[in-house]
């Protein structure tokens, strides 16, 4: 359950940015959790209330977008969707690929008071 560590990391980063922006309460937070990021949304849901309790995010509305995996084949250059890290290029079957979407874990935006 590394999701608790990650949830606490989200809280720390969001609070730092909110304070920088002059806020005292974070009303909402937008997360991007790629399908290949290695984070289970259900596990994050479980960890979330523990991580936000008593913080600026205690009552924040959370929205999550989960971009699917996209990769470029290193051999033939085809751009394709991937569901698993071990998927091969559908055209040339190569496993050498550059995954350019779906691995990110980001705070896209926060809404603060004031």
């Amino acid at each position: 359950m590394h999701e608790l560590s990650i949830a606490i990391g989200i809280v720390e980063l969001a609070e730092k940015e909110a304070i920088k922006g002059g806020g005292t309460v974070i009303e909402s937070i937008e997360l991007e959790i790629g399908k290949l990021s290695g984070i289970e949304i259900e596990a994050l849901d479980f960890a979330w209330p523990i991580a936000v309790r008593g913080t600026m995010l205690a009552n924040a509305k959370r929205t999550v977008t989960s971009p699917p995996g996209r990769a470029k084949c290193a051999d033939c250059g085809l751009i394709f969707d991937i569901e698993n890290l071990f998927d091969s290029c559908p055209k040339c079957n190569s496993y050498l690929k550059d995954i350019f979407q779906g691995k990110d874990l980001k705070i896209k935006a926060i809404t603060i008071d004031g």
Partner: peptide
């Protein structure tokens, strides 16, 4: 004082930066 009239801050920051 959550009033729904907050200010949006675009971040696009990597969550794993804490580590």
């Amino acid at each position: 004082h959550i009033d729904g009239h907050g200010r949006v801050i675009e971040l696009g920051k990597d969550i794993m930066q804490f580590n």
